[in-house]
Nucleic acid binder design. Structure first.
Length: 182
DNA sequence: CTCGGGATGCGT
DNA sequence: CGCATCCCGAGG
């Protein structure tokens, strides 16, 4: 139940991505807790990663990726959905983990099987951009199942990234029904 | 300023 | 496969 600390996020991005599986995301909305267990993530490993928003260098949109570990990077996609990342590694590394799906545990009434649906169901929007995961209304806890199998696959929707599109940087909990694109 | 595409999701 | 819908980055 303990909140993940700064050191957790300040590590190699693939390691953080895998370790985030099974952990719980908590967002307190108008006094009510919305809790989901992370079951699917993708790692975006820095400015050399052609699939990463940070590959084009620092811009207004991706600036949070260049910030300190343990803050959120939230952006609008296709004019209608938000996607939420957890910024990793030391400030300036411009790496992050995209949360793609959670298993509803508490206070969630909408589907969560995909990055856009996840944000909508958990009440995550641009207001949480740059938000610190060590805050009291939006954070991650270490509460996770004892053991589970992790599947590695190429990331979704990054065909433009050449060789980087083939890298197995998407991770999800095997046979979990809340993983997207089954 | 215009212009085009996007780490999506849903319906056909 | 088409499309909704809009922010933002590139270019003139």
């Amino acid at each position: 139940m303990a909140k993940l600390d700064r050191a957790f996020y300040n590590r190699d991005t693939v390691t953080v991505a895998r370790d985030l599986l099974g952990k719980c995301l908590v967002h307190v909305v108008q006094g009510n807790r919305r809790v989901g267990r992370i079951v699917e993530v993708e790692a975006y490993v820095g400015v050399h990663d052609k699939a990463s928003h940070s590959a084009k260098g620092l811009t207004t949109r991706n600036a949070p990726m260049f910030g300190p570990p343990g803050i959120a990077y939230v952006y609008l996609i296709y004019g209608m959905y938000y996607c939420m990342n957890v910024v990793t590694e030391a400030e300036g590394h411009a790496s992050a983990v995209l949360l793609r799906a959670v298993e509803p545990l508490q206070g969630i009434t909408e589907r969560t099987q995909g990055p856009g649906l996840l944000c909508r169901a958990m009440g995550i929007d641009k207001r949480l951009n740059r938000h610190d995961f060590l805050s009291d209304d939006f954070y991650l806890t270490d509460d996770a199942p004892a053991d589970f199998k992790i599947v590695k696959r190429p990331r979704i929707g990054v065909d433009y990234a050449g060789a980087w599109a083939k890298r197995h940087l998407r991770f999800y909990i095997a046979s979990n029904p809340f993983v997207s694109r089954k």
